[in-house]
Design a binder for these strands. Structure first.
Lengths: 275, 275
DNA sequence: AGGAACTGTCCGATATATCGGACAGACGTC
DNA sequence: GACGTCTGTCCGATATATCGGACAGTTCCT
């Protein structure tokens, strides 16, 4: 009886970190779920939705009874964790921002990365990102859109297939070819425009990135951007994160080289903190 | 039977936004609390605690049974909302950062303020903060510690008595004298070092700040810092936030004037977004 | 005007999450 | 080596949170 409306939305922007334990969008029909699981599902839904949602839409999205969602959301609003927005919508609230800031502050690498990202963006005017793996996906953890924010390719906390990114070619450096192919879901080799990446090429690019100590890709996510990434390496030699520029593809080679120098300097500095 | 240990800790860094509805630290002894209320209390406790806490300490801190806290915390860790840290401690996790970033992105004023704060900090090298009221307290919403991060006076999301701050003198501009005195708790006029602020002086300073369109205070939070604040004003003329510099008290007057010019420019730009 | 789809609120029943207590093991101190 | 305090795990009982359904009011179609 329960329509699975909006399933598409959630699928498209899959997140993977906070999905309800076993159920895709909700407990088995008739089953009763715990409040905490409902809350986690509501967070995941709002994050995937990317903008305020009305309570009815949330209830449908997570497959929970409306009455339950009203109850929980109102309690979360009271706590400042969610916030009512215009037109009946609800989205994340101030408390989330405070707790998120606590997280960043508590991780030395992130705290420093935030400074580096802001500094590079200000100095060079380009978009700078600090990226990591999130399960078997890639995600932007920190970003500064720079001055000429011509286009936002990806946003904080939104997961993206690893092969779509320059950083992805660095972040898998510690894995063997077999491990890599087992790790990445088949469908992640398909780009947004339908093109399919060749796995042999991909493996070769990972190898090359590891030898050079950086990676550059063009026209993967879209036709007009180039992504340049440098690795942040921990004490064991493993690439734990990357710092990268997102620039227009027609950026002159000399400028790209200068930007890469700046990236490598920052990455080395971050690597010291990560050790 | 239940010791109220750590009560002091929570008191000292009172937060005010996410405290469990009625109970100070937990439900009445013997009573049974909802999972969601426990979760909210756990968040508030960790935020007040300012660093990873062990589960036993959390249980004591929020006045909940250990078995319940284990259950809830493990579920939250699974969802990436909390994260295990070294030595058995637990603190906020990646998901919190992602959701917090969603919040900032969804509020136009905050998104722009983040850019302004980073830009001013980079350009001037001083600590810049974007501040707001949180109930009847003051709190830093955004901060960039600048280059010479000589000392962190306050951190994101930590509430501070309004009279302690330069911003506080601007943020109450829309209230009458009676309203202000009714709004601020008696104890908030006592500074950290025990000095008591005179209410008449305080009201006069608010009036002066409103007429000048900025506020400057020295030696309030500690002896060595000066705080300079400029108001962000919405369409109705109300001060909805401030942007401010935190500098050493011995900063030359000419430099302070130049910094204030930069603040006022940013504040005017933000005011346009806030309207 | 009628209908469809929404919102926000209330209610009683029952499946179950929370709780208290017990357990073994780890750690440090005296 | 005995003691106190901690951890992580398990369990059964029962107070109760979740659920389904109903309600009136609103909006937006046609």
């Amino acid at each position: 009886m329960r329509r699975d409306a909006r399933g598409k939305v959630l699928d498209g922007v899959s997140d993977g970190i906070a999905a309800p334990a076993a159920a895709p969008y909700g407990a088995a029909p008739g089953g009763r779920a715990r409040g905490i699981d409902r809350v986690i599902a509501i967070f995941a839904f709002l994050h995937a939705h990317r903008e305020p949602a009305r309570i009815g839409a949330i209830a449908r999205g997570v497959g929970a009874p409306r009455s339950t969602v009203y109850e929980l959301v109102n309690r979360l609003i009271e706590a400042g964790i969610l916030e009512p927005r215009g037109d009946g919508g609800v989205y994340f609230g101030r408390a989330m921002h405070y707790y998120g800031a606590d997280y960043v502050r508590s991780v030395a690498l992130l705290e420093q990365a935030q400074k580096e990202v802001a500094h590079l963006a200000e100095e060079c005017g380009e978009t700078v990102q600090f990226c990591r793996l999130e399960g078997n996906k890639y995600t932007v953890v920190l970003m500064d859109a720079g001055r000429r924010t011509f286009k936002i390719t990806s946003e904080i906390g939104v997961t993206v297939p690893i092969p779509w990114t320059a950083s992805g070619r660095l972040l898998l450096g510690h894995m063997s070819a077999e491990e890599i192919l087992a790790f990445i879901p088949e469908e992640d080799f398909v780009l947004a425009d339908g093109r399919v990446l060749d796995k042999t090429d991909f493996l070769a690019e990972i190898d090359e990135a590891g030898r050079h100590g950086y990676a550059v890709t063009s026209g993967l996510v879209d036709d007009f951007t180039t992504c340049m990434a440098a690795p942040v390496i921990d004490g064991t030699g493993r690439v734990v994160a990357t710092i990268c520029f997102v620039v227009t593809r027609n950026t002159p080679t000399e400028r790209q080289e200068r930007l890469m120098e700046r990236l490598l300097t920052s990455a080395r500095s971050l690597s010291r903190t990560a050790s």
